[in-house]
Design a protein around this nucleic acid. Structure first.
Length: 755
DNA sequence: ATCCCACCTG
DNA sequence: CAGGTGGGAT
């Protein structure tokens, strides 16, 4: 039997065949012409599976790209410590930052641009290799780091602020930092293996595997085991580090608590002038403390943000103390020889050192983040490889080896937003849908101390080395804290809108300080952004939780902050085929419910509509997507969507038809498509992934008809004809049914998915 | 010329 | 899913 099962050849064998059906369609759509045709073959036992096997189309390409970032951070942390204070908490926050990124999961964690942070040219290649490697083993973020000898676990339980200057502690600290240094200076996995691995994986997707790839494959396989072991060790190492950091964090809290207690005590007996700042930060602290302790139970959760918040509070307080009490209290304590005061003073000095350290570290972290984002976006040529660079063909990739891989600005953008919005898991997204990301579900700590968001958000400050510009953290506080947790709406800055990404959830929008109103505009690269906007526009439209839309925010009125409204503010560009609309209309607070672009929810809606109509007319689309401002772009995009839907649909049909034939099915009567059928499950997975929509029976019937059409055609050998599918298309296009009125509502998803 | 389509590719 | 392409239909 001639390769009936080689569904792989489905597309190739029909090279450039014209299978147009050229059917004239009407809005109402022809219904049920072939209904009898279907019903007559409705066998009683059709509820069972049609015993079609196989599924698994597409594949997820989640890529972890963070290890290079971690290394950067670690490296920087190390370089700081050389130039820093006696008590160098420098690496603490670096580690916490790292941790923060690390815990966001392996896939698509963004930060691709970080390769441009500080590295010289020679480093880039290694970085690239590293990120590639991690993308291959995305369950292990740290496989870039060599295992190295594992130092015995540190116990920081004796760590006490009262003995900050203790030799003992210094020794411990040194050991911690040795670990870090060891990690960051460890040799990398050899690039060849990594690249080869990438190439090999690429080629597995392709049917034609060039012979030369095999050697690469073997190379990879031989290293695979090695890396597995390395990864395991590194995981342990990282867990260890996390534990230690958690302990350190707790100690910090203790220290801070004891100090604030004393502070309060002193304020009570002394001048009693508790500043507004400390009151506020205390309140903040209280909340965070509770939260932190709750979180403590969760081993996987170490919240750097919490830690940083505390650090900030401490710094605020510290600055206050510096101003008000430096001479006064200390002087008094010394003069009076008051033991208690002296002790307090010592603690305070220790705290001050810590504060200084934190101050610098926070500064550097801010710079780093800003640096990363800016460079990642405005200088893509320097950026390291990104998940989307998987799109290189293997040959291209081989050519890339030894060169700097040049991702498009979109790649950086993609990664950044992936990082921002949470990490899609393979379960959530198994198709190639690179830019649809989940909205971050958790409510992050809100940056209360930030002013109201301003419009438009200005670009960030250029990076500055903290040791060169040890500007007081308090001065930049207004802008830096949110950047720690949501530093990535920055790429959106190029758009004259509010970043809606900053306004969701925790509402930690990028809030500029008074002085960061320059830069990026001066970057020539930014001028090129308009060129990217057309595609970016589409991509951005898919941001904002289309697949989280399984549980759409029903509170959000359309055109506001819901996923629907998200793209409203995101999308605005000169789609060359559309009109350049008035920018003022695009305010996220616009009362208009007409959107400029298609949102993830629109996509979802379109998919659901596909259950009713495979061949919607343009008019129909306009009617059913009435909340979208139509232009040629929108129209063709919608049409394209349905075209893609059909493509998938027919591919599945042919695949399962051939499969049935290979399984020995001889008559179409044996072919039934029930809700348990593999075929239906595959389709449902594609168009109704969350399974929160009840697929109409009618679709099952149509699917069955389609399957049988394919079956009959193949059995009859019609597939020898280059355009054999054409006849099938002609049949199927008549099977469209009316799309329920509900779909005409812009809010239909809320209603449709209610059950 | 324009629209829409299937097909291929990334 | 989007870009690009070629082709048929109007």
């Amino acid at each position: 039997m001639p390769d009936h099962d080689s569904a792989a050849l489905l597309t190739r064998q029909t090279k450039r065949r014209r299978v147009d059906i050229g059917v004239k369609r009407t809005v109402g759509s022809v219904t049920g012409i072939l209904l009898d045709n279907m019903n007559q073959s409705h066998s009683p036992d059709q509820d069972g599976d049609c015993s079609l096997i196989g599924r698994g189309h597409g594949g997820s390409h989640g890529d972890g790209e963070k290890s290079n970032v971690l290394r950067k951070l670690l490296k920087r942390a190390n370089s700081y410590e050389d130039a820093m204070m006696p008590f160098t908490g420098a690496t603490i926050i670096s580690q916490l930052l790292k941790n923060n990124m690390g815990k966001n999961g392996g896939s698509d964690s963004g930060f691709q641009g970080s390769g441009a942070l500080s590295s010289g040219g020679s480093e880039i290649q290694a970085e690239d290799a590293c990120s590639n490697s991690s993308s291959q083993d995305r369950d292990s973020p740290s496989n870039c780091l060599s295992p190295g000898p594992l130092p015995s676990p540190l116990s920081l339980s004796t760590f006490d602020l009262d003995r900050l200057s203790d030799e003992h502690l210094r020794a411990k600290r040194a050991r911690v930092e040795n670990i870090i240094r060891g990690m960051s200076h460890s040799p990398l996995v050899r690039p060849t293996g990594v690249i080869a691995g990438e190439a090999y994986r690429e080629n597995k997707r392709k049917q034609r595997l060039p012979q030369q790839q095999h050697s690469f494959a073997q190379l990879v396989c031989s290293r695979q085991e090695q890396r597995q072991e390395e990864r395991r060790q590194l995981k342990l190492q990282l867990e260890d580090m996390q534990k230690q950091l958690r302990q350190l964090q707790e100690k910090f809290y203790q220290i801070y608590d004891s100090e604030t207690e004393e502070e309060e005590e002193e304020n009570r007996e002394g001048d009693g002038n508790l500043s507004e700042d400390s009151i506020r930060s205390d309140g903040l602290e209280e909340r965070h403390r509770d939260r932190g302790r709750r979180r403590h139970d969760d081993l996987s959760e170490l919240d750097p943000g919490l830690f940083l918040d505390r650090a900030r509070a401490l710094l605020r307080q510290q600055a206050l103390m510096d101003r008000e009490m430096e001479d006064d209290v200390v002087g008094r304590a010394v003069a009076e020889g008051d033991e208690r005061n002296g002790e307090r003073m010592m603690k305070r000095q220790g705290g001050r050192q810590l504060a200084e350290t934190l101050k610098q570290e926070l500064n550097s972290a801010v710079s780093q983040v800003v640096d990363t984002v800016v460079k990642g976006f405005s200088s893509p040529k320097q950026a390291v490889s990104s998940p989307t660079s998987n799109y290189h063909t293997s040959n291209q990739r081989l050519h890339c080896f030894g060169d700097i891989i040049v991702p498009s600005p979109l790649d950086s953008f993609n990664g950044l937003n992936g990082r921002l919005s949470g990490v899609p898991t393979p379960n959530d997204q198994t198709e190639a849908l690179p830019l649809v990301v989940r909205k971050s579900g958790g409510s992050s700590v809100s940056g209360e101390e930030n002013g109201p968001p301003s419009l438009p958000p200005p670009p960030p400050q250029p990076p500055h080395h903290p040791s060169l510009h040890p500007s007081p953290l308090t001065a930049t506080l207004g802008f830096s804290p949110p950047s720690f947790r949501h530093p990535f709406p920055l790429p959106l800055m190029g758009y004259p809108f509010h970043s809606p990404l900053g306004s969701h959830g925790g509402g930690t929008g990028y809030t500029p300080g008074p002085k960061d109103h320059n830069h990026i505009h001066s970057s020539p690269d930014c001028m090129d952004m308009t060129r990217e906007t057309v595609s970016l526009r589409t991509k951005m439209a898919t941001l904002g939780g289309g697949h989280l839309g399984h549980h759409p925010n029903r509170q959000s009125p359309p055109g506001q902050h819901g996923p629907e409204g998200l793209s409203l503010s995101l999308i605005k560009s000169e789609c060359e085929c559309g009109d350049l609309a008035d920018m003022a209309d695009i305010s996220p607070y616009s009362s208009s419910t007409i959107q400029e672009g298609l949102s993830p929810n629109h996509l979802k809606k379109a998919k659901l509509m596909f259950f009713y109509t495979r061949y919607p007319s343009s008019n129909m689309l306009k009617i059913f997507f009435s909340d979208v401002k139509f232009n040629r772009c929108i129209t063709s995009q919608l049409i394209k969507w349905f075209s893609n839907f059909r493509e998938f649909y027919y591919i599945q049909m042919e695949k399962y038809a051939r499969q049935a034939i290979n399984e020995g099915v001889t008559g179409v009567e044996e072919l039934a498509v029930g809700r348990d059928a593999e075929l239906f499950r595959a389709l449902n997975m594609h168009y109704n992934k969350a399974n929160d929509f009840e697929v109409p029976d009618r679709f099952l019937e149509v699917a069955q008809v389609t399957l049988r059409e394919f079956f009959n055609a193949i059995v009859a050998g019609k597939d020898a004809d280059p355009s054999w599918k054409k006849a099938i298309y002609k049949v199927i296009c008549k099977l469209d049914s009316e799309v329920p009125e509900t779909f005409k509502s812009p809010n239909c998803l809320q209603e449709l998915l209610h059950d």
